[in-house]
């Protein structure tokens, strides 16, 4: 069995994916998507000079990369003994998850609501499940304090 975990900042989805992988002796791949949709999200910003806008987009990309690095460390610490790998890609989060899920997985594990990058503003689950080729296991996110 092959499981794909879509990573966000909900620790419960990682815990559930690990539990499932251990119970079923499955391979667990985790996917972290660096959100590249900030340019589109800030499309209303038509007044900024080029330098200001480029500086902002670079800052967002750096922040996303720092989050990716921190997530990778946390994931590697937890996943010991389970076969699989951590994949990091850049793009539209929902599209990248669906694209990866099409590569022969049996189950996709993700949080609901999903909070990676700008997806906290969108209905990611609805976007991902559209034409999803495998089963999906949704993990309820813990309410923010």
């Amino acid at each position: 069995m092959k499981i794909l975990l879509a990573l966000d900042d909900n620790p419960r989805s990682l815990a559930e994916a690990l539990r499932l992988a251990r119970e079923r002796g499955a391979t667990l791949n985790a996917l972290f998507v660096i959100d590249s949709t900030w340019e589109m999200f800030t499309g209303h910003d038509w007044l900024s000079g080029c330098n200001s806008r480029i500086g902002f987009l670079e800052y967002m990309h750096t922040t996303e990369e720092e989050t990716a690095a921190a997530t990778a460390i946390a994931f590697k610490k937890e996943v010991e003994g389970i076969p699989g790998e951590l994949l990091t890609v850049t793009g539209d989060v929902a599209e990248e998850i669906r694209r990866e899920a099409e590569k022969g997985y049996d189950l996709l594990v993700m949080s609901s609501p999903f909070t990676r990058g700008l997806e906290m503003m969108r209905d990611t689950v609805a976007r991902v499940t559209k034409k999803l080729p495998c089963d999906i296991f949704l993990v309820k996110a813990e309410p923010k304090k």
Binding site: T42, S52, Y59, M120, M121
Partner: peptide, 29 residues
């Protein structure tokens, strides 16, 4: 000042978190 453009100009200098910035922009819009 002027909404999204000012948020974009200020965010890097004050180390704004993406989640907060997204909520700010949605509110302003």
């Amino acid at each position: 000042v002027c909404g999204v453009s000012a948020s974009v100009a200020t965010a890097p200098g004050v180390r704004a978190k993406p989640v907060d910035l997204a909520l700010c922009i949605a509110t302003i819009l």
